[in-house]
Nucleic acid binder design. Structure first.
Lengths: 127, 127
DNA sequence: CTGTATCCACAACGATACTG
DNA sequence: CAGTATCGTTGTGGATACAG
């Protein structure tokens, strides 16, 4: 009811008619634990260095971040560029393809904000 | 509470300030392989039986579907109701909470539709 | 029809330490 | 700064068979 009404008809065929499923396809790309957070960070702050990401994500280890970035690179969602040789400086950024995920990531974020936010007594903080 | 513009500022704090992250929280709920597809199916077709889901999802085994549904139940996203005793009939449906995920799931689906759809020469299918 | 019981395989994650 | 090397643990999924 949101936007399109026509193109979605195809969906019924693909998704319920088996064989190919847009959702399964999408999760196969961003379904790993840290992928959405990493992508979100890149969406919000633009190109970032390895350690910048490591700080921002919080909780992720070097290895897992490294693995995740490599995976995202293979999937063409993130690009890796060496900016400096001396003190090695690498920059990770979203490809156009990766940026197209913005609506998905933001929707996930917004939902989490609305339904999973830790209890906040802020409203009735007048007490 | 849906259309918020203010609260999002909090996000920067929570998500980049560490500690709590809406995206990580969301993926911890629907981040498993089949969860999004199952939810999507329930969104589109409403309450369904076990085998109905098994058919619809395509590729999922009894065990994994069972495990997934149990997990979704524990997370309060899906409710399980026994409709009939004779020939056992069970019905799975989304809770209100689960239904609230619609924007997220649809966004994933739409993105997949747009960017991952298998090449279609449908345009020139006049043959 | 609606599951459970097993068992196995492998991917994913995490902690720690080390390197250019 | 930007990773890699190990190693171990757990998670997740898949195949098959069986059961209420």
């Amino acid at each position: 009811m949101l936007a399109m009404t026509e193109p979605l008809n195809q969906l019924e065929v693909w998704c319920e008619g088996k064989e190919w499923c847009p959702i399964t396809s999408t999760t196969s790309l961003i379904g790993k634990k840290w992928h959405p957070v990493i992508i979100h960070r890149l969406l919000k702050h633009g190109p970032s260095g390895f350690n910048e990401l490591k700080e921002a994500v919080d909780g992720i280890s070097s290895k897992v971040l490294s693995d995740s970035l490599e995976d995202l690179e293979n999937k063409q969602l993130v690009s890796r560029e060496i900016v400096n040789e001396k003190p090695v400086r690498v920059q990770y950024s979203l490809t156009q393809y990766g940026e197209s995920l913005q609506p998905v990531i933001f929707e996930m974020r917004d939902w989490g904000m609305e339904y999973l936010a830790p209890a906040e007594d802020a409203e009735s903080s007048t007490v």
